[in-house]
Design a protein around this nucleic acid. Structure first.
Lengths: 244, 244, 244, 244
DNA sequence: GATGAATGAGGATTCATTCAT
DNA sequence: AATGAATGAATCCTCATTCAT
């Protein structure tokens, strides 16, 4: 049926990339504010300065829009982390980096994290999706760290790297659920240290004589730092050279 | 929907407890088969042999019905485990028991587990709910085990018991997501062993008793902890060498 | 999502049969006025004095509602005709009855006839539908008449009864399309006579060129025609003993 | 819908005739495959190698495009038949030719035939359209044949040629509906023979001598009734047994 | 206490058509 | 003349919840 609009149409032509990014920005806002179910396409269109139909030129449906928004967020995160991570040396520091950045992204974007955990990941089509691959790459860095650590004789060879990955990411999620529900707050740096230490310690080739000096030193430094802190000197949250 | 069958539903006056359990059994079935959103009250009523209105005599709304169903499942699980658990001795065995029973319940009731993880836990009213308390008790057993292990000098004193709890339960969830999505299978016993070993080993006091450095560090750490505790400066959540 | 109506609901409880007939009456009206595509469920609900949702308690969708409305109309027609038809004797009269009643129903309910011809019959699920069976019974009366006529030695044995059926019903449709489009009018009785005569004559056994009776009849008929034309009296619908 | 491919459509300046025929060819394909409602302008444009806007340079709207496509098909059919038909002699052969070619075109292009029957013919603007005229010419050949047959003393003079036309074309449509719905198949030659024989025999002057008395009596009675009516006794509209 | 018909707000999605470029 | 992004009206259907009987 032809539209019966009386008023002349106002067509505002923009380059597609711009339109797409406008729509995605608006969608991100609305999804973050309302969650997936309560987000209205009308609202998104309104904020993006387009008509509802225009959204469907670029996105097959509301769900695809959600996926694209989360993908975008994820890719940006990966891009930002990638070079920094490349510069980190030592298994403790690397694990700490991964844990810390993950915690930070949860802390910065709790709503998006929830969408990922609650809406995207449980879906039956998740495996096979681009996000699945992105996430795989994201978490696989930890697997590589553990593998390298084992190869270097630094970490216990019987530790399954993939199990360690689940340990770490699972722990993070479990520990942040209250925050994701909007209850209280947490300090990413502090929590990162705690998790990293616990995990790293557990993985180390048991303080054996042949334990690498580095980690011993690290722990000594940590202990010293706390002593110092107790003495009142300064807040030394991160005794390592770890970038934040 | 076609006009309902002419045959009237029977007016069965039953004791309320029976009604409630019928409804909950039907609801459990439907929630398991369809998930929360796609479960229809009509369907539940039909299977329970009551009419929709009767459900609302006993449950305020669909959500409460879900919560009650999951609660019931959870309580049953707890009851079953409780006595068995009481008989387990040794931290490894206790951790292993907790991990194994959790994995088993996921393996047996993946749909209910999903409802718990996806629908119940993320809700803003979760904290404060009965299920939150039940779950707290459920997971707290692990906290107690760790605490006891530390007290017994068996486990590392600087390990935060609550962090260990998150480590374990988070790991389990992460590792079973694919299964919960319906992809593949897993062996609870095998996975329980792997997780327990990894965690327990990491928690044990100085794998190598005769490592000189280790004991040095440990003593340093312990000293620092005591110093901190004594000075009582800040809220010392973690009296261990874990920096905040 | 629960309804957020502020105002109290007004529930108007009626026996289901009444509701259904109300809805079907309203639907019939709207379908007749607007055609299938332009008919709005909202409009139907409004006229039936119910809410849109109530329609969906009894009819799966708009299409089923259409089908039910047409079915009802058709069944009524069949019922009305059935006993009258049983009383008609002679193949000419029987064919004439069938043709006349069909033309009458088209004349009385052109919009419903269109729905049947345009919307229902071309649908891929038509065969196998109840309407298909009804229509089959409806048109099959003609097949039976022809078969009986052949058996009685009255009609030509080589005429395929089913072909005669298509001849008659096809002819009627073709001849009434202009009327169905809203162009002009037609006189069912007159058209029924014409079609019946043409078909019946073509089917009859006998009437060789050299048949004396034949020429007698033909001449009688011609004479009558001339007389009629001369007197120019008036429209006389059915000169036969045909019940109307 | 996913964002369109980056590759721009080529700007091909083509002679308008070529553009039009490309568009019509594409439209024919799509209409045939999907039917009118489900045919998308976008799809047609894509297959024609133009953009949507270009279609609207040549066709006022989707409906006009449909009409033009069917017109084109119809004109081609007429052109092909015309010369062949001119060579056919004898009323049986001519009727058979018309029936056969009509059946053949339905058999060859069922989808286009459906569009004609379902979409075009029932429309209120059909009368007055070019297609109406084309179809009139198409079916009028049969009228001419009948008229010529009557004039030649070969066919019964009281048969209304236009009624015969409706008889034939209506019969064909009725008999092919199942095929048009995609159910089963038919043999045009065989069906053409059956229809032609039935109709032609019925139209021929004079039949057998062994006509049963009953029908003779029936017709005598009818003639008498009309005579009586003419004499003023009752209303008598039908002068011959075939009014008009 | 049980019944179950009735409520009614809600929202994603489609696609022919337009018109600025 | 060609492009194709943008328009925007329009509507079917769902289903938790209520409440007259």
């Amino acid at each position: 049926m032809p539209p019966r609009s009386a008023a002349k149409r106002q067509v505002n032509r923009l380059p597609p990339e711009r339109r797409i990014s406008d729509i995605m920005a608006a969608a991100k806002e609305v999804f973050v504010e309302k969650g997936y179910n309560d987000a209205l396409i009308t609202d998104i269109a309104l904020r993006a300065g387009v008509v509802e139909g225009s959204i469907y030129r670029f996105f097959a449906n509301k769900r695809e829009l959600l996926v694209k928004v989360v993908e975008h967020w994820f890719e940006e995160m990966l891009r930002d982390d990638a070079e920094q991570f490349a510069a980190v040396r030592g298994s403790w520091n690397q694990i700490r980096f991964i844990v810390y950045t993950h915690l930070t992204s949860i802390h910065r974007d709790p709503a998006l994290s929830r969408l990922m955990f609650q809406e995207i990941r449980p879906a039956p089509d998740y495996r096979g999706s681009h996000l699945f691959e992105l996430n795989r790459a994201y978490t696989h860095r930890l697997v590589d760290v553990v593998k390298a650590g084992i190869a270097a004789g630094e970490l216990r060879p019987e530790a399954s790297p993939s199990l360690v990955r689940d340990l770490v990411f699972g722990c993070i999620e479990h520990r942040t659920w209250a925050f994701l529900r909007g209850e209280g707050n947490f300090d990413p740096a502090e929590m990162a240290d705690a998790i990293t230490n616990l995990v790293h310690h557990g993985l180390m080739l048991g303080s054996e004589p042949n334990s690498p000096m580095e980690s011993v030193i690290t722990r000594l430094e940590a202990a010293a730092a706390r002593l110092e802190a107790t003495t009142g000197i300064a807040s030394a949250k991160t005794p390592s050279s770890f970038p934040r």
